[in-house]
């Protein structure tokens, strides 16, 4: 369970998570149960995100999304780099999958293949959630290393020394990636073509 913890504890947890994932990928069955313990919060995570989004998905769509996300998480285990705890990694993937599900549903309804009930106008809280969602979407477009470094800075509150240790880069390189990533993110969010890759 994720508790309020120091960055050192979080780093330790992320490192232990990476070891766990490697054991799971090596086919150690007992480790699958430990992975289940860590990621059993995924269904609640998706339900919470849907609530925050003003029930954008119907209950049956949420159930399908949960199923899809669990399969995707399993298939993407090999991409887990141990930069943040497993729950954070899963949250990022589930958010992306939810975004894709909403887009697919919109495309489906735009093509006139399904009658979709009218969606109520979003309230102020939902509009704020949409803005934050755009930030997350923009971050995903950045890709590593800028995305990882910005997330470690603002989502995990790491110092640049800690980020450098966690990502195995020099402190100045981490700072440079952060600054350039921030500028690219601003452009991405403005709908401009990003500058050359950092």
């Amino acid at each position: 369970m994720i508790q309020k913890s120091t960055t050192a504890e979080t780093a330790d947890l992320a490192a232990r998570d990476l070891a766990l994932v490697k054991q799971v990928l090596a086919g150690e069955p007992a480790c699958v149960d430990r992975l289940v313990e860590r990621l059993q919060c995924v269904p609640a995570m998706i339900r919470a995100r849907n609530r925050r989004w003003g029930q954008a998905l119907r209950p049956d769509e949420v159930e399908d999304l949960i199923q899809d996300c669990l399969v995707v998480l399993w298939k993407k285990l090999g991409t887990f780099a141990g930069l943040s705890p497993l729950e954070h990694w899963a949250h990022r993937i589930c958010s992306l999958e939810m975004m894709n599900a909403l887009r697919a549903r919109d495309r489906h309804s735009a093509a006139g293949t399904e009658v979709v009930e009218s969606v109520p106008e979003p309230c102020q809280e939902e509009l704020v959630a949409t803005d934050r969602h755009r930030v997350g979407e923009g971050l995903q477009q950045l890709g590593p290393p800028a995305e990882d470094i910005i997330r470690l800075k603002h989502f995990e509150h790491l110092t640049f020394d800690e980020i450098a240790r966690r990502t195995g880069t020099a402190v100045n390189t981490a700072k440079s990636h952060y600054y350039r990533g921030l500028r690219r993110l601003r452009q991405v969010l403005q709908g401009l073509a990003p500058e050359e890759a950092a």
């Binding site: 919060c41 995924v42 609640a44 919470a48 199923q67 949250h91 959630a129 989502f155």
Partner: peptide, 27 residues
Amino acid sequence: GSETRSEIDQAVRDTVPADRDRVAQVF
């Protein structure tokens, strides 16, 4: 970042036994 952390903490608290079964089944 703050929203993400609170969403994860809330999800951990809201997890019910059926969720665990479901994750176990898929994995």
